[in-house]
Design a protein around this nucleic acid. Structure first.
Lengths: 341, 341
DNA sequence: ATGAAAGCGCTAACAT
DNA sequence: ATGTTAGCGCTTTCAT
């Protein structure tokens, strides 16, 4: 099954490879008759130029490398989907890798991207979400970003050395907590997240600040980090319901935790939102299909992905870009939150 | 930012490029001292061989092309995730494209895969799920599959000309419907799906057959195709509830439709499963987190992805493979179905 | 309008 | 153990 090359076409058409190249790329005028002869041959033999060979000298691959931490998380796939739509406009395709948040895999994939000479890179999750960063990991990433145009989504590295696009999680959390306060809630808990992740500390800071500004007390026993999963939400709500003094509203680190929390609350005979208001974060598609529909903060995931690619495209064109693009979150008022009483 | 090449390293180490190539690939013994010298240089300059150049003569890219119809659909990402894990074992990376079920995009992406000389291809959705196929589209795909090892997931082309891996949707549907019958339901509806898709006709055939074998009547007004979305499920349940004679159980084309159906039913004051049993298909992660947890047929999406890659790996190694690998579905008994009355 | 030939960065015979 | 060299399939001067 030998692949047919430009030489084969040239020989069959009785022209040089240069001429064939010209008709393929339209880089120079070619006599009508010979052009037609060549085009017919290309059609007939289903000839497709070898992108490797071309990339080798053009130094462009048309590929954007993407590193995501979890392909089954709807938030990331939504970002991916937006990015894909935008990348289409410049004909770029994705080399996709799934790091599972494993730093070693991230390193491995960074190498692969370099070897394959991707035109640009998008990085999500993992090392760029560490609360205190990690010198070595950051250095490695920065070095890659020096060779390959790179955009970080919802994260950063030491010294904010790499271009990034991010939702304003702090503002988003403030909006959500304020919404609860405006509804008369004075006893509000915070559920989920891992303390060593920047997301968690950002949201928690916003949470505390908003309570304080409203003159409300921050009760440490109502601040329960753990992780980001539905199961985590279930367990945490369990803990909350065992407390002597219970909150009337709960802010969750994300929609998964909110779903878990609601499930457990419902299992315990509570009515949501009548007995307790619960709000999430992310606005995954499921959030507005769940029963009850979940009040949450939209990260505009699709837009986040699109924007990241737009910024990356500029970067690849050597245009000037803002080091930091902020996407404003939106509060999505739905059915899992209600006025107190 | 000129990329450093093997020539640069060779010059700096006072050896020939061949020697450098040898230490990089370990293809021949190199004197300890020179090896160390070279390795140090590689480290120092962060040299990474250009995969394009290598691929050009090895005729291997280490890339598997994937065409999916919808990146935001949890079923597909679950398949993708399984595939990714398996591909990792042979160091393959994914060139991912999102066809949105658009045949023209599929064609475009097929071309890209050819140009980029991917080592293999996985194809999901779109043209391979057409009930009656499409001569031209099939021909195109078959032609590509002749050059590039290709595996179809849950679909086929004319004459089953391409290797495929698929869930037994027919058997899965039979299991689910039989489960309803075993629970005393005699009035069962079928919701969702588009009639021109093979999935729909396969499941519908199974549905009718199972009812008939149980001596039950198939009522055409209870067979309501439409599409595969949550909104579709909502609309269809709406229609169902307007009927004079209502079913006591519903088989849905997939979990999305089931979710929509449940939502509408609940909105209308029905209790699920007490007033009506509803079962889905796919077992997306959400299915067992929904309230109520949804009885459904697991497609073993992760396993489906893994298997497809395993088959593809054999294909790429020119090993002999079965033209058709079947994945057996599993019935997941949960809370959205219950005995009649 | 077309052709000849150099070169992109690497590997693998073939020599030494 | 190491070097020389011929490609891999293409684009792009530079000639003609």
């Amino acid at each position: 099954m030998k692949q047919i090359t430009i030489y084969d076409i040239a020989r069959l058409a009785n022209v040089s490879v240069a001429t064939v190249s010209r008709v393929i790329n339209g880089t120079a005028p070619v006599k009508h008759s010979t052009r037609e002869r060549i085009e017919a041959l290309i059609q007939q033999y289903q000839f497709q130029p070898n992108a490797m060979a071309r990339s080798l000298l053009k130094k462009e691959t048309g590929i954007i490398g993407i590193i995501v931490p979890d392909l089954t998380n709807p938030f990331y796939t939504e970002v991916l989907s937006g990015a894909e739509q935008e990348a289409l406009t410049t004909g770029h395709t994705f080399l996709l890798t799934n790091s599972v948040g494993d730093y070693q895999k991230e390193s491995q994939y960074l190498s692969i991207m370099r070897e394959k000479r991707v035109d640009g890179m998008i990085f999500l999750g993992g090392r760029i979400n560490l609360r205190n960063g990690n010198e070595t990991l950051d250095q490695e990433l920065i070095q890659h970003a020096n060779t390959i145009p790179t955009v970080l989504i919802n994260g950063t590295v030491k010294g904010n050395a790499i271009t990034r696009v991010a939702t304003d999680e702090y503002a988003g959390t403030c909006m959500a907590v304020q919404h609860l306060i405006d509804n008369g809630h004075e006893h509000i808990a915070f559920l989920g997240g891992e303390m060593h992740m920047s997301t968690t500390s950002n949201k928690l800071r916003a949470f505390k600040k908003t309570l304080k500004d409203a003159g409300l007390q921050v009760r440490e026993e109502w601040i329960l980090p753990d992780s980001f999963s539905i199961d985590s939400g279930r367990g945490l709500m369990h803990k909350l319901l065992e407390l002597r003094k219970k909150p009337t509203a709960v802010m969750c680190i994300n929609d998964f935790v909110a779903i878990g929390a609601i499930k457990t609350a419902v299992d315990h005979g509570l009515f949501i939102p009548d007995d307790m208001s619960i709000v999430g974060f992310d606005d995954i598609p499921l959030a507005h299909h769940f029963i009850p529909e979940i009040t949450t903060v939209s990260q505009e995931a699709n837009e986040l992905g699109r924007t990241a690619i737009r910024v990356l495209q500029k970067l690849m064109n050597r245009e000037k870009v803002k080091k930091h693009t902020v996407i404003e979150p939106k509060l999505m008022l739905r059915k899992s939150s209600a006025p107190f009483r």
